[in-house]
Design a protein around this nucleic acid. Sequence first.
DNA 1: GTCAAAATAGAGCCTTGGCTACATTTCTAA
DNA 2: TTAGAAATGTAGCCAAGGCTCTATTTTGAC
Lengths: 140, 140
Amino acid sequence: MELPTELIHATRFGKTRSAQSTALLEDYVELIADLLANEGEARPTDIARRLGVAHATAIKTVSRLKRAGLATARPYRGVFLTEKGEALAQRVRIRHRLVVDVLRAIGVPVEAAEADAEGIEHYVSEATLQAFARFLRGRS
Amino acid sequence: MELPTELIHATRFGKTRSAQSTALLEDYVELIADLLANEGEARPTDIARRLGVAHATAIKTVSRLKRAGLATARPYRGVFLTEKGEALAQRVRIRHRLVVDVLRAIGVPVEAAEADAEGIEHYVSEATLQAFARFLRGRS
DNA sequence: GTCAAAATAGAGCCTTGGCTACATTTCTAA
DNA sequence: TTAGAAATGTAGCCAAGGCTCTATTTTGAC
Ligand SMILES: [Mn+2]
Ligand SMILES: [Mn+2]
Ligand SMILES: [Mn+2]
Ligand SMILES: [Mn+2]
C-alpha cells in the first residue's frame, strides 16, 4: 500500500478515460443486438435514427466495430455481431438492467433512471455490479 | 406523449453524449479547486500528474477551460477559477460525494465506490441526485 | 549573480466521433 | 422493366483530447 495520492487519483482517471472510449462501442453493440432480436436485421439507417446521429456517422462507427472484432457487415447488407460482439451485448444488457433496477429501487423516477443509466452503465465495475445484485436480492 | 421509440432513445443518447463532452471539464475544475484549497496553487504540472496525462495535455485543456469561461491563467503563473468555475466545482464536489455515499450505502467496497464514482458522477441528473439525497436521509 | 534544472508553452501528429455533400447501389411501385 | 426513392457508402471537414518533441521562461542551488 502507501501509494502516493497522485498515483491513486491518476489511476482512477485513467480507468474512467478507458471506460469512456469503450462506452460508444458498447451502446452500438447493445443496440445492434436489440435490432437483430426485434426487427431481424440491423441496418445503418436504423442504427443512426435510434442513436440520433447522421447515417454516415453510424456507418463509420460500424467499421470501427469491425476493426475491433465485434461486428461483421458486407456492403449494402446490414450489420451482424461476432461471437465476441454477442458476448459483449449480453454483458451490457445485464449491466443496463441492473443499473436501472438499482436506481428505481432507490427512488429515482423511471424516466430519469432510464436516461441516466444510459451513461452510468459504462462506468460500473464488477465489484459494484455484484454489490448492486446483492442489494436488489436483499430487498425483494 | 406517444413519442416514437426511436426519438426517445435518440434523446437519451444525445444527453449522454453531451454529458460526456463536459465530463472532462468537470474533472479539471474539481481538481483545480482541490489543489487551490489544499496546496494554495494549481500548477499545470500538478494537474497533469494527478490526472495521469502529459503536461502538454493539461495545458491544452486548461486553455479550453479558459475559453469556456471557467478558469483564468497567465503564462507561467498557475491556474485559477472564475466565479463560474468555482460554482461548477462546488456542484461537482457535492455530486461526487453523493454518488460515493450512495454506492457505499448500497454495499459497494470503498475503493470501487471511489473509482466508479469518478465516471458515474458526470451522468447523474438533478432528479436522480434528489432521489439519492432522499435515500441517504431515509436511512441515516 | 549564474546557470542548470524544472516548469511552462507551443507545434505538430494521431484517433475518435461528430457533420455535410456527393456518389453509388438496391428496392419498389407504376 | 424501369425510373425514382431510399438506403448505403465515400470524401472531406471540424473539434476534442491524447501524445512527443522542441523552445522558452522561471526557479533554486551554489
Ligand atoms: Mn449507454
Ligand atoms: Mn444501455
Ligand atoms: Mn470524474
Ligand atoms: Mn469527481
